[in-house]
Design a protein around this nucleic acid. Sequence first.
DNA 1: GCGTTCGCTTGATCCAAGTCAACCATAAAT
DNA 2: ATTTATGGTTGACTTGGATCAAGCGAACGC
Lengths: 248, 248
Amino acid sequence: MSQAHPLNQEVTLSVIKTACSNCNLRELCLPYGLSQEELERLDDLVSTRRRVKRGDHLYRAGEVFDAIYAIRSGFFKTDVLLEDGRDQVTGFQMAGELLGLDGISSEHHTCNAIALEDSEICAIPFSRLEGLSREIHTLQHHFHKVMSREIVRDHGVMMLLGTMRAEERLAAFLLNLSQRFTARGFSHAEFYLRMTREEIGSYLGLKLETVSRAFSRFQEEGHIAVQQKHVRILNVNGLKALMSHRPS
Amino acid sequence: MSQAHPLNQEVTLSVIKTACSNCNLRELCLPYGLSQEELERLDDLVSTRRRVKRGDHLYRAGEVFDAIYAIRSGFFKTDVLLEDGRDQVTGFQMAGELLGLDGISSEHHTCNAIALEDSEICAIPFSRLEGLSREIHTLQHHFHKVMSREIVRDHGVMMLLGTMRAEERLAAFLLNLSQRFTARGFSHAEFYLRMTREEIGSYLGLKLETVSRAFSRFQEEGHIAVQQKHVRILNVNGLKALMSHRPS
DNA sequence: GCGTTCGCTTGATCCAAGTCAACCATAAAT
DNA sequence: ATTTATGGTTGACTTGGATCAAGCGAACGC
């Protein structure tokens, strides 16, 4: 729940201003394809917004599921924890993407969602979303597409983890980030990584040293310029070539 | 589309007999939790049944998506193909499970579904399913759970591929099969593998030789008895222990 | 019945990535 | 400004699983 604010009127105004209907992510997010009138009905539903500070959990594995979350701004990771202490990052999510879909199946979240930078999310009560999507066909269909897209994405990761070698994995990862930044109007060639080498490694099934070496190698070969978290892609095609190079 | 049958009346009768409402998989499959009246409405929708012979494709990557499929009997694998020829098995599906969910996102199938034994499926036209689930809340919710469960399953596979060693992967795989056979009323301890060592390896991100060696090792250690595709689990706890043994 | 094929097993060798360890860079804390 | 902590890089060495190769058993076609 969002905290009390010293100037309540101002908050109310700002909530109205940040409704789906004038959110600049609406073409990436859940409202995709809705009419103005439908958008306003969705606005009613997406009433709770919340800030999540860097390092804080949006939700934890095991907590009761009752809402999905749309990222308004910021950057998250999700990870799962095995009993024996091993964990794995299952994804990195950015503005316009949804978090929490895995919780529907058991009514409990099955992973942790942690902000990698100060972020803002919109909470969408799930039962109300189901209600509205029974009335708005477009919303229903788009929601199904979003869930399906998540399944397709996961298959891509399985492919990556199952068949690619270290450098291919990192190349695929960088290209994927680049493409998602582009879709959000940022530079496709230059960005800051929000996650550590260890988190990248966990996601890609590699150790942090291997990730670091691959970064260095890409730099040596002129594909990218890296300094810590700052990455500049110098040769997209070089990276792409790396990926389908070795038929294993 | 199903082929013409010499005795049409008999087919019609058999279609009626194999409706969701008296399918013994209804508690595992899409109809879960529906009332008798709702079940009958679902029956109307699931009109097409089809046999798929061992080795045949139910659908191929790239084909237009317009239905999801429930497995009535038999066994399938799904796999994705990379441009450079590499492929990976993304899952094995058995009776009561759904195929094709990945196709919703782009209106095209993104993987191949191939029968590993002679099988029978029910085709569920997707737009009609959406229509009905706008009317039947229980169906809508259950469908969302099924999609979400697929996402959770995929996270499990990511975990397996990203953090587990070869023997842990195979142990996890065998325990998962065992548990699913149990849920279908089969023995949890004894079953025939429908897939080859190579297909298991592809799914687990291992080479077939490694899979074979792991099987041999499990046998030496008394966890299982294997002969070709016939597997008997002798020590479930032994397998479970293998999984969480090494903290990596 | 007999060869052919396909899938499985096992051994020997090799290599990509993991492990261990030292050191460096940047940012926060005092 | 100096210390401390955290994250990143690099090198030396090890190892789990891949690769290469040979042989075997069951199933199928002729």
